[in-house]
Design a protein around this nucleic acid. Structure first.
Lengths: 214, 214
DNA sequence: ATGCGATGTTGACATTGGTAACTCCAAACG
DNA sequence: CGTTTGGAGTTACCAATGTCAACATCGCAT
């Protein structure tokens, strides 16, 4: 309501909003400052009162994208009802992977945005809180796997990078890489295979039954 | 020598050449038509006699990048001297991964170029020749693993996607993702862990000794 | 020699990100 | 209640880029 024709009210939010819209529709490369201004009904250059430059706006939008990704993963995690601690932990790890890929495919634009402007490294500092980022959630899940005895502590090191690499690679290849064009069925099968492979690899120390059957 | 001041001789090659140079130095986004022309000492627009548009030139450069990647992998494969068929096959698969990542890190610009303009899918059609692309080489290596009895035929399906995903993901995260900034040592360790994990996962059917020791 | 087609050139145009200088309004202060 | 001050938007402008159209130049076949 406080929208006098001049002072917009909260241009910043509005800009980030349309930015997200545009990215969802046409990808990060379609993120054009002047068009955003047009859409919001404001002159170009208005944006410069709120963002240092184009990149700053892109970063702001990327933050939104990250939240969306986290939300998707959380949603998937919440659906796990498994009771047995070991099976539960393993299932949770898989769901993180599924959620990650689900988001990448459903929101290809946002997913790509996320990695054209990523907030630098996650700073090896894992181990504190669960973190509100996917990497933190992954680490939490892996720690859980150690606690329940599925993953040998010795194999915990590097497991995060391995898991992330596999799932991220799968997502990238399917979204913008040579694997786009796979049918939904092929994709699902491949992803299941990938995740089961990880699950099997992590638990290779003991003699656990596959999550696939049962 | 045939360089009269007017007709350049073979502009096409020259353009692709400097394009590759620029990408190596400053990445794919620095690939600016007009600058290439300047570098070659020709007027802008000259390029349009040889390329339909910017994208066509990018594609041509990407082709070069692909060749370079393949060369790097071949070089690594050629160095494997292992005699025992099983160990040899396993080692070869690992070297493909190492080569892939090595290239991504050493030639970050070219690697990124490769995936900003990728020649569509590899067309599920694997099984013919080894192919001169990394995907073909990967498939050949996996087939070899089946032949020597390390990889169960049943697990062959999807193994290609799993391997590619893991290695590609690792490369991407390290080159342009949140894992850039890892020290060389950390990176090496993580990659070794990843590749051993794959090796272990593929051979999980039998009871093979790790490639790490011995 | 000559004329034609491939190869380059010049000139223009619309778009984009960005800077500078101006304007407008609202709230703080006397 | 008037004024001033500064945040928020605006217009004017610039250089760079991709691309199109029209023109120039050269070599080779006739």
């Amino acid at each position: 309501m406080t929208t006098s024709p001049y002072h917009h009210g909260n241009l910043r939010e509005a800009l980030v909003g349309v930015a997200v819209d545009v990215v969802r529709e046409r990808g990060p490369e379609a993120l054009v400052l002047r068009e955003l201004a047009r859409r919001v009904g404001v002159s170009h250059n208005a944006a410069y009162r709120h963002f240092a430059d184009r990149e700053a706006l892109v970063d702001a939008a990327a933050e939104r994208a990250l939240e969306a990704l986290v939300a998707t993963i959380r949603r998937r995690l919440a659906r796990v009802e498994e009771q047995d601690p070991v099976r539960r932990a393993r299932r949770r790890l898989m769901e993180i992977g599924v959620g990650y890929v689900e988001f990448a495919l459903a929101e290809a634009g946002l997913f790509r945005l996320l990695f054209t402007a990523y907030p630098d490294p996650p700073d090896g500092a894992h181990g504190d809180g669960e973190g509100d980022d996917p990497y933190g959630m992954l680490n939490a899940a892996l720690d859980e796997l150690v606690e329940v005895g599925y993953l040998a502590a010795r194999d915990r090191v590097g497991a995060d990078v391995t898991c992330w690499s596999a799932v991220h690679g799968f997502a990238v290849l399917n979204v913008e890489g040579p694997l786009r064009g796979l049918s939904a069925d092929e994709r699902d099968a491949a992803l299941t295979g990938l995740l089961l492979g990880i699950d099997r690899g992590l638990g290779a120390g003991g003699d656990w039954p596959s999550l696939a059957d049962g």
